[in-house]
Nucleic acid binder design. Structure first.
Lengths: 211, 211
DNA sequence: GGGCCGCAGTAGACACCGTCAACTACACCG
DNA sequence: CGGTGTAGTTGACGGTGTCTACTGCGGCCC
């Protein structure tokens, strides 16, 4: 049964899918409930029956992006016997995701939601990804034999997340145009950044990354 | 002559000021050309005489934020005889700015402008800040006596910028609500991050930062 | 000085948007 | 059979960006 054109069976589901398609095609700003309804061959108020407001449909799209992101990080092949390498792989996966799915990435981290507290599913997905990172740091610290507070793990995870998040944002957003960086530099940036993070964490594995 | 209420002398200038005030008061989404005009006691088309579109007035506001940011970084007290310390001071200044002027910071780095290439002044201000950082890195490398390509300086500057930018974004945006981080951790984060950056750059000055 | 032109600002209209309220169609249940 | 709740429709309202046509008004050239 083709649910694409002609009134879809599950309208709520179809709205989210169609909204994402619109955003992908013409940008976040031009997303409108009415356009979604139009594409679904449905009255302009039908989506309103399933979502209290435009923000709620948008947050549903964002939540989906977070799930996609979490699944991506989870499905990455792990290296349990080498936590340092594993952490590096996770960082690489983070940057790869931002590179391969810039739309989803921007939806997650650059979408202005009025009050994120309204949408618990979204927050949970985000928190999940951060917890993965914390666990990676903790495992690495354990093999390094360093004494390590929970607080210190969180701070290090935050440092790593910040660096990854920052680079992803720069690469995806304003790098070439605003900062006028060559795509050559931008291509080297992930490896270099991960190398520097490795050094910062006292990990020799990353030290040789930039020659 | 009070140019605030009653038709302002320089309408173009007044539009930018008033737009910023509106954004500060009620958020970016609710900014409208008509509201700007209303507050300026002017017809809804008057601002349109000075700005081709709503995006252009917004980009003027963003450009102003970039100038503010650049001035802030420039006015920071420098430590010419200790480049490492100087670099750290610059990082601190960066994070301080994001902390003290979250609105301007978000305007600069989290505002969706359709095509930034249209607004050269904006780009120039951003590039200026990045160049400051590159020079800081280059000076530090020089005192370290390390051989250093121009490319490597840029990559390191990019690493530092990414970490700072990432942390600022996390702190200003989604930290407590989405990532559920305590404000205690968040308060420690800048010093810790700068310390880790110091370590990554092979600089002992930052190594003791997190105890 | 008088006509002319360009510029700043005004007024009205258009299409679009989110949202509210009232309505219809229909399945289900007593 | 009537009642009830749910999904969807229709129409309206106020707000928005933008287009077009209009009014003043100061400077400029003849």
């Amino acid at each position: 049964m083709p649910a694409d054109r002609g009134r879809p069976e599950d309208l709520k589901e179809a709205c989210v899918t169609e909204a994402l398609a619109i955003i992908a095609a013409t940008g976040l700003e031009t997303l409108s409930l009415r356009e979604v309804a139009r594409r679904l061959s449905v009255s302009h108020q039908a989506p309103y029956r399933h979502f209290p407001s435009r923000d709620h449909i948008l947050s549903a799209v964002v939540a989906r992006a977070f799930d996609h992101f979490s699944a991506y990080l989870d499905s990455r092949q792990q290296v349990p016997d080498n936590p340092a390498q594993d952490l590096r792989g996770m960082g690489l996966a983070y940057l790869s995701y931002a590179d391969e799915h810039p739309l989803q990435y921007r939806l997650m981290f650059a979408t202005p939601l009025p009050n994120p507290a309204d949408h618990p599913g979204m927050m949970q997905s985000a928190r999940h990804a951060f917890t993965l990172l914390e666990q990676g740091v903790a495992r690495m610290r354990a093999t390094q034999g360093q004494p390590c507070t929970e607080e210190l793990v969180t701070l290090d995870a935050l440092f790593i997340w910040a660096a990854l998040h920052g680079l992803a944002g720069i690469r995806g957003g304003c790098a070439i145009t605003t900062l006028r960086l060559s795509s050559d530099i931008l291509g080297q940036a992930p490896a270099h950044l991960l190398g520097r993070i490795g050094q910062a964490m006292g990990n020799p594995c990353g030290a040789k990354a930039d020659g």
